[in-house]
Design a protein around this nucleic acid. Structure first.
Length: 765
DNA sequence: AGCACGCCGACT
DNA sequence: GTCGGCGTGCTC
């Protein structure tokens, strides 16, 4: 069978005579059901068309941007011709193959993945006037939007104009933006400034330090001056302002490389042997390990692609790499917040001008000239996968994406984390292991057995906090649940107040009139009840450790200011005690880290694997001591996490995963259908179940409350249209993905009222 | 019958 | 993404 991305094996396009005649094209329009289409290559374009060439091809009369994804033998079918090639958007053939694999493995349309691999901000509607017809208001060579052409020529007129090649679609990179620069005039300023003009002097000095020219945005920021001072300098004739084309934010390293020696062997070994490697390295050593890998790659003449989970981590890493790597290498960040600069970086990386490209998952598909290594930091982090709900980027974990990329481009991969995901650590994943690095420091651990106590915060815990505060240390308290309490129950009959739709206990949130009840699953909010709905008693009591409650209890007991740190709020910044969610509290290092409910962290929400990582991270974030309260002090996962013993954890969990058929031993796809129950059931029973291949197991549909209030608002879901979950399980990843893709296509084609979303191998089910 | 509207499938 | 076909349902 001919491979769709490499072409038929019968007629390899080698010489001019056998140049490609017919190509398979993925048109980049927002339609999830449009198949790949075939076009004839006109003689004038023959030779310039290969896999990865971006082309303009007609579809219902109009030109469309597309990517050549394969060849085909000439048949007897009448085919339309390609119109032009848009050569400054071409993708490397290897990247197209990667996109095809990613699409197949994730049940996503190839078009969606290709779009993510193209430079951001393409103007796909720009048309160039080639041969203006008599009477046209435009001159030859003029570029204008398709909308304007249509307004003047009409729909039919535009079609004819395109067919006669009077105008052609010219998809192009985002036009370069100009930024304002301040330039020192001849003769400088120096003594001519009045003595009191501090700001102007600061500006002038900063400008001189930058060699006499600098973008004004940086200049004002660095000198701490406003535009008024800048104006003054212009009026004095000391400087002038001018527009210059924006440049990619590529910077040079300026270190010595001296701190990297101890990681040289590991990095060298991975790059020498190639393939995928897991390197268990303590989080604080992460930057140095990345630097060592980048250095080893540079020594072999290759660039390095580094992936970090969040923008903030990317920027931090760029700064540290500049400091750690020997002078003379180029480093650049790549993430969505760069705006237009991202497009320039894409181009610089493609031309091989960036030695180390550090980016978020958006960078995983960026072409990098002479790529020598790929490095994924904080590998198990879920932020490495785009939220499938947001429709931004490819909802595939960067780990899985670069695994494929490494294979196709034959580039060594190194995955870093002290607690790698088990699906990667399992020997069956194909990743080899480098000798793990020991943490430089591990805190003293104190485990408080809470069995048989009613107190939420033990006296041991409070004493430990007091002691740390006496020594002027800081305390970080991990409480992942928001609100004052995780549940409200009746003290008389024991009834737990729960959400009527989700049947999960309500959390108690702060607010007027006794606060409100909030459902963590669907986002439902209610006024806090005064009486038990079951027995009418007014003896309702709140329980369960939540950030807000822990904070007020601690503030009262310790008599200090306590900062609450959650995604939403942060007050009392700089307080000696911080209570908050793991991600935020563990970012800052504390002398004492307190985990008041280790059981909730480990088993409360999500997988045990994630809980293990969080607890391990809590220990890493401590500069001196860690205290954890638990009701299962003997639990092996808890023990392993607190002892920093990942190997013991993996040894216990890996056989369990194998037995359950979790990745990489088996694969699953999570399919979410949104719509009325009857339509969902009909679609599943008549359309899907009979179409499944043997060996693929289907469970569901089971109702899933839309996750969070914001999702509900976005999708307009209501009581009649809830979401339904289907799970597909099979041994092979490709077979679940294929089945999931089939489901998605069938539902999209036949069941108009339903929305489908597919996630292959989600991090959590 | 005549027309507006919306859904569906084709487009290469 | 764009278009035409066709069915539904409403109006003259």
């Amino acid at each position: 069978m001919p491979n769709p991305t490499t072409g038929s094996s019968q007629q390899p396009p080698r010489t001019r005579r056998s140049a490609v005649r017919v190509v398979r094209v993925a048109l980049l329009i927002r339609s999830h059901t449009l198949p790949l289409l075939s076009y004839r290559v006109p003689n004038r374009l023959a030779g310039g068309v290969r896999v990865g060439t971006t082309v303009v091809a007609p579809l219902s009369g109009y030109g469309r941007l597309g990517v050549v994804v394969g060849f085909e033998r000439e048949g007897d079918r009448e085919l339309k011709e390609l119109r032009t090639v848009a050569s400054d958007l071409n993708l490397p053939a290897t990247l197209v193959r990667l996109c095809a694999r990613v699409a197949a493995a994730s049940a996503l349309p190839l078009q969606t993945v290709l779009r993510a691999a193209l430079p951001p901000g393409i103007s796909a509607a720009a048309c160039e006037v080639i041969r203006p017809a008599p009477g046209w208001p435009w001159k030859r060579g003029e570029v204008l939007g398709r909308a304007e052409l249509r307004r003047t020529l009409g729909a039919a007129g535009l079609k004819t104009a395109e067919e006669e090649m009077r105008v052609i679609l010219t998809p192009r990179r985002a036009p370069p933006r100009t930024v304002e620069w301040a330039v020192l005039e001849e003769g400088g300023i120096g003594s001519r400034l009045p003595r009191r003009a501090h700001r102007q002097r600061a500006l002038a000095e900063t400008l001189e330090r930058h060699g006499g020219a600098c973008p004004t945005a940086y200049l004002l920021d660095e000198a701490g001056a406003g535009r008024a001072s800048l104006r003054q300098l212009v009026l004095r004739g000391a400087i002038r302002l001018e527009g210059r084309p924006e440049t990619a934010p590529v910077s040079y390293t300026r270190g010595s490389g001296a701190d990297l020696a101890s990681y040289r062997d590991g990095a060298g070994r991975a790059l020498e042997r190639g393939g995928a490697w897991v390197w268990r390295t303590p989080t604080p050593q992460g930057s140095a390990v990345v630097a060592a890998i980048a250095r080893a790659a540079a020594a072999r003449g290759g660039g390095t692609l580094v992936l970090a989970p969040e923008v903030e981590a990317v920027e931090r890493l760029v700064g540290e790499l500049r400091r750690l790597l020997p002078a003379g290498l180029t480093v650049a960040p790549y993430h969505a917040k760069l705006g237009r600069g991202r497009d320039l970086l894409y181009e610089a990386a493609r031309r091989g001008e960036v030695d180390v490209l550090v980016g978020t998952r958006a960078a995983a598909l960026v072409p990098v000239g002479s790529l020598g290594a790929i490095c994924v930091t904080d590998e198990p982090n879920e932020a490495h996968r785009a939220d499938p709900e947001s429709h931004e980027g490819v909802p595939v974990h960067a780990r899985d994406l670069v695994m494929e990329r490494g294979r196709i481009e034959d580039v060594p991969l190194v995955f870093l984390s002290p607690t790698p995901s088990l699906k990667l650590y399992a020997p069956e994943s194909g990743a080899s292991r480098l000798p793990p690095r020991k943490p430089d420091f591990w805190p003293a651990i104190r485990l408080v057995d809470q069995r048989g106590t009613g107190a939420a915060l033990s006296s041991t815990l409070l004493d430990a906090c007091r002691e740390t505060l006496r020594e002027e240390g800081c305390v970080g308290v991990v409480a992942n649940r928001l609100g004052l309490a995780t549940l409200v129950s009746c003290r008389r009959c024991g009834r737990v107040l729960s959400c009527p739709t989700c049947d999960r206990p309500f959390a108690l949130h702060d607010g007027p009139e006794g606060g409100s009840l909030a459902c963590g699953t669907c986002g439902r909010r209610e006024r806090a009840a005064r009486e038990c709905p079951a027995c009418g008693s007014d003896r309702l009591g709140a329980a369960g450790l939540a950030a807000g409650g822990v904070r007020s209890t601690l503030a009262g007991a310790l008599d200090v200011e306590v900062d609450l740190l959650t995604a939403r709020e942060r007050d009392a910044a700089g307080a000696p005690v911080v209570v908050g969610t793991t991600g935020l509290v563990l970012k800052k290092r504390c002398d004492l880290v307190v985990v008041p409910d280790a059981d909730a962290l480990l088993f409360g929400s999500g997988t045990v694997e994630r809980g293990f990582g969080l607890l391990y991270g809590a220990a890493e974030a401590s500069r001196s001591r860690l205290l954890a309260q638990t009701r299962s002090p003997e639990h092996p996962v808890l023990r392993a996490a607190l002892a920093g013993d990942y190997e013991a954890f993996a040894a216990a969990e890996l056989p369990r995963r194998r037995a359950l058929g979790y990745p990489p031993h088996g694969h699953l796809a999570k399919i979410t259908l949104t719509g009325p129950e009857r339509a969902v059931r009909r679609a599943v029973e008549s359309g899907l179940r009979p179409a499944l291949e043997p060996g693929i197991e289907l469970t569901g549909p089971s109702p899933v409350p839309a996750n969070g209030a914001n999702v509900k608002a976005k999708t307009g879901a209501n009581a009649e249209t809830t979401s339904w979950r289907l799970l597909l399980r099979a041994r092979g990843r490709e077979s679940v993905a294929a089945a999931a893709a089939l489901v998605a296509r069938r539902v999209a084609e036949r069941c108009g009222g339903l929305r489908v979303r597919v996630e292959v191998d989600p991090e959590e089910v």
